[in-house]
Design a protein around this nucleic acid. Sequence first.
DNA 1: TCGATCCTGTAG
DNA 2: CTACAGGATCGA
Length: 269
Amino acid sequence: MPELPEVEAVVRRFREAAIGASIHSVQIERAGTVAPHLPSEFKSLHGASILRAHRRAKHIFIHLSGDQHLHIHLRMTGNLYVIPDYRLRPHSARVWFRLKDNRSIIYEDSRALGKVHLVTRAQIERIESGLGPEPLEPTFTPMILKAILATSRSPIKPMLLDQTRIAGVGNIYASEALWHSRIHPCTRANQVPVRKISKLHSAIQKVLREAAAGAYAGYQQPGTAIESESFGVSAYGRAGKPCLRCQTPIKRITQAARSTFFCPSCQPC
DNA sequence: TCGATCCTGTAG
DNA sequence: CTACAGGATCGA
């Protein structure tokens, strides 16, 4: 589910619900979600209060009292939210934090690929320093994108997923941005024509911004279908369906073991 | 730079 | 039953 806009929505909701709350206890239903930590290490969170939460790329960092920090990555199917009572938690709750006010913070993850880690401030800095620019921040300019593209000979679409180059673009929005900027996904990054670089830059921002607007309203708690991508999607998941610009059937290919969707007619090589 | 891998769920 | 899933890491 979550790409950058969805993670942003999760963090915003989390902040509204959880800042200022105090943790009563921590339940770890699945050790793998906190590995390589031991569940017992999380006892240090008992009594801690939640001070801040922020997002960097698709990473979530939660700052707690006592100079403690949680690092949460939702991966494919993770979700983080607060519910009124722990007994309402879904079957796929992997870690939950009972709050002193009786509510609970739930980390839910059906595929269990995501992680909930305890980290130090130094570790957070190390993680963040390894990431490329945030695509929705002013620091991400067409010139910066041009410089990033120049350093890679790999096909542009897998390159867009490389978090060390640009942080937060995922599989759906990579295909979408290329469709909007009419760039073939197999084009080598350093071969993208200069004229199309600014198109790509604005397409990345457009696609992420529009998704962000929908995600905050649409990213729901358990049981509700998560369909934030179902509106505004022009190429992703539309194999065989007509391109919205030229009616040519959208094609699906595999790149770096991920699906890519594009229009073979209006995204020429 | 690729393929395999971590997992579970759902669609075909 | 198989294929595939919006992520990221690891080893070859």
